[in-house]
């Protein structure tokens, strides 16, 4: 059985050593795919070791440079800014230590934003997982219009976030919007302030739109995962007289496990960094009912010129995402990312 994680590592390995016949180059290629690993060897002839190192340096340098300028430098800069009170004018002189962090963590708006992010993380997985799975299982059966249905499900994901957001914003307008009009036609009166304008409904409305937008990704990933479930297992279960439902529960879903876990990981990180859809639909309102950590730091940074506060908030967002990602890898993705050698042992 192959899974998404295996496929990705395999593909990275192949693309990193582009059709060369030299074994050294292949070693270099593999090393470049995993830059964190220390360069092996060094006991063989010093000449070849040096050469190998040069090759490694040559292949890794462009990627490392990009990583340095577009990832490391901004992170360091954000950490630096977070220790100063700086309004965007003049040099960084007003050092305040951890005061910005204290102020962010004591800020009700930020704590509210963090809660919204966590609600969205949980709700996205809790809603999209069963729904996506059900649709993927349905679409995996041979039936009329399968291709069209798959496309329809996937279209929202392909649409640009901004366009989808503006369309939903218009649909959800109170009184004039299509959704209110449709509800009115069947005798239901929408909330007077509109779905996006009522603090109690706004976050859930955003979650509904997010579900519509990202369900397609879940379905496509699950469908891809389903392709890798061996046909023989289904045949075997049929011979054993298992019902369709039993087959799904005992064979399909367990074998989809790695795909589901990887998807949930992506969904979680996406939810933590959520910005554009919220920004377009509500701008974080009404009355901060839908702020996320990202909208908070944009507001503080670009609108109020509190670059220190925004820096501290971005560092906190980074730490929250990093900790959750590491915990997830440690406890849930562990089975999927063991190296192939030990996996074989487990299987045997």
């Amino acid at each position: 059985m192959t899974d998404v994680a295996d496929e990705t590592t395999a593909r990275v390995g192949v693309t990193a050593s582009p059709a060369t016949s030299s074994p050294q180059a292949q070693v270099a290629g593999r090393a470049s795919a995993r830059p964190a690993a220390p360069a092996p060897g060094g006991r063989r002839g010093t000449g070849s070791a040096l050469r190998k190192r040069l090759e490694i340096a040559f292949f890794v340098a462009p990627a490392l440079l990009l990583f340095l300028f577009f990832v490391v430098v901004p992170i360091v800069r954000a950490v630096q800014l977070s220790a100063y009170r700086w309004k965007g004018y003049g040099p960084l002189v007003d050092f305040v230590g951890l005061k910005n962090y204290v102020s962010v963590l004591n800020n009700d708006v930020f704590i509210g934003a963090l809660q919204h992010n966590l609600i969205i993380v949980v709700a996205s997985i809790a809603i999209q997982l069963p729904l996506g799975l059900a649709i993927a299982l349905l679409l995996n059966r041979k039936m009329w219009g399968q291709g069209v249905l798959r496309t329809i499900i996937f279209v929202p994901y392909v649409l640009a976030e901004v366009i989808a957001g503006v369309v939903w914003y218009q649909l959800l307008q109170p009184k004039y919007g299509v959704i209110d009009a449709m509800l009115a036609a069947v005798g239901i009166k929408g909330p007077a302030q509109g779905f996006l304008g009522t603090p109690e409904y706004a976050l859930w409305t955003v979650i509904v739109v997010l579900t519509w937008k990202y369900l397609g990704l879940a379905v496509i990933l699950f469908l891809a995962g389903l392709q890798s479930v061996p046909e023989e297992l289904y045949e075997a279960s049929q011979i054993d007289g298992a019902s369709w439902w039993q087959t799904q529960r005992k064979i399909t879903i367990p074998l989809l496990g790695p795909t589901i876990r990887t998807w949930a990981f992506l969904s979680m990180i996406g939810s933590l960094q959520l910005f554009d859809m919220v920004w377009i639909l509500t701008g974080g309102g009404p009355a901060n009912a839908t702020t996320t950590m990202a909208t908070f730091l944009i507001n503080e940074g670009t609108k109020r010129q509190n670059y220190g506060i925004a820096g501290a908030a971005s560092v906190i967002l980074f730490v929250v995402a990093l900790v959750l990602a590491l915990l997830y890898q440690r406890f849930i993705l562990r089975r999927d990312i063991q190296d192939p050698a030990s996996r074989k042992k487990v299987k045997a």
Partner: peptide, 14 residues
């Protein structure tokens, strides 16, 4: 007006 909480000041019909 109805929907004043999400209404913008200067953009669009609402």
């Amino acid at each position: 007006q109805d929907g004043f909480l999400e209404a913008p000041a200067q953009q669009g019909d609402t």
